[in-house]
């Protein structure tokens, strides 16, 4: 056949690798949406179940896409490509910078909405670079709550007080902590807004065929957090562990593990821990690292990770990312991260 090419080829065409993961979402007829935080950020492709990070894979060959005109035994090239788009499965994330924090202060919710102007829950879901499933999981993790169609995040103290009420109610009514009915619980929680209870259950219980089951390690962690937050000054690690043990509601016994609190505390001095929240940290990486080293001179990657991983938008290996702003020194078998 004769082969032609347009003199001016059309560069609006792109080739995307139909990887098995992507094909699967298509087989399931999932909705696919390209998303990005803003016009200068990475591109993600979100389906109902997966999030793909889109990268460009360049090659050195000439690839021409042609339309084949079988009748006239010719083909005409209309596009020429030096790259393919490569979708790689990553974990999605929700950008909550516009979502207000709701604490129980006596303020009417309608007034709160007027004051803070929260995004609609549907919009938040629509713009998040996360698949539907991932969104739901992370929304629960964040204590996200949908009230009258608005997206808000429940404040820490509110969550803890709801959680305490739920636990004491379960204990008081002798309900099975590993298989209880949410409806029955709801009925016995008189003063608690159902949305709040829903949020707290989404975070601290798993749904099983037999009913809801409390996630004890997670609950343990939250009480640890509460103790950490209650003293802002550094405390001795052993004193902290004792206070943590004492913090649980009566007749509710769970084990504790300081590793579960990584990302919520720093070690300003040896053997001392201090609550440290990532929420107020600067978004600029240089400033962020500066802050972190101000509070703690030397870090393990594991303990630093929760404070910096959100900045690694290019999905670099975290070790390499950290090295852009800090020194990562090998000391024996371990690595420590220090100021540069």
């Amino acid at each position: 056949m004769d082969i032609y090419s347009w003199l001016q080829r059309d560069d609006s065409f792109h080739l995307i690798q139909m990887t098995p993961d992507l094909v699967k979402t298509m087989e399931n007829n999932e909705r696919l949406i390209f998303k990005s935080r803003d016009r200068d950020s990475s591109i993600f492709l979100c389906s109902d179940s997966k999030t793909f990070h889109i990268r460009k894979k360049n090659h050195s060959n000439t690839v021409i896409v042609l339309k084949h005109d079988k009748e006239n035994a010719k083909a005409i090239g209309f596009a020429s490509m030096d790259s393919e788009l490569e979708p790689k499965v990553v974990s999605g994330s929700i950008d909550i910078s516009d979502v207000p924090l709701f604490e129980e202060t006596g303020e009417e919710f309608t007034d709160f909405v007027k004051r803070t102007n929260p995004p609609s829950f549907a919009d938040l879901r629509a713009v998040s670079t996360a698949s539907k499933t991932e969104f739901d999981v992370q929304w629960a993790e964040l204590n996200g709550c949908e009230i009258d169609g608005h997206a808000v995040i429940l404040g820490f103290n509110l969550v803890v007080s709801v959680l305490k009420t739920i636990i004491t109610t379960l204990v008081a009514y002798d309900m099975d902590q590993e298989a209880f009915s949410a409806t029955k619980l709801q009925e016995r929680l008189e003063d608690i807004r159902p949305e709040f209870a829903r949020t707290v259950l989404a975070q601290f219980a798993t749904k099983t065929p037999a009913g809801y089951s409390l996630d004890k390690p997670k609950i343990s962690r939250w009480f640890g957090l509460q103790v950490l937050r209650s003293t802002l000054a550094p405390v001795k690690e052993e004193d902290f562990l004792i206070n943590w043990k004492d913090a649980f509601p009566a007749f509710f016994d769970v084990s504790i593990d300081i590793q579960s609190l990584v990302g919520s505390f720093v070690r300003p001095f040896p053997n001392m821990v201090q609550f440290y929240n990532s929420a107020g940290l600067p978004q600029d990486p240089v400033q962020r690292f500066k802050e972190l080293f101000k509070i703690q001179a030397s870090w393990s990657l594991e303990e630093m990770k929760p404070y910096v991983e959100d900045l690694n938008s290019r999905n670099l290996k975290l070790e390499s990312f950290v090295m852009k702003y800090a020194r990562r020194k090998r000391i024996g078998k371990n690595y420590v991260i220090t100021r540069r």
Binding site: H14, F34, S36, D38, R39, D40, S41, S42, I43, I54, R55, K56, K57, N58, H59, S60, L85, E86, R314
Partner: peptide
């Protein structure tokens, strides 16, 4: 075809 790059929304 070794090179893989991140692209921005505005690139595409």
């Amino acid at each position: 075809d070794a090179v893989k790059k991140n692209i921005r929304w505005s690139d595409l």
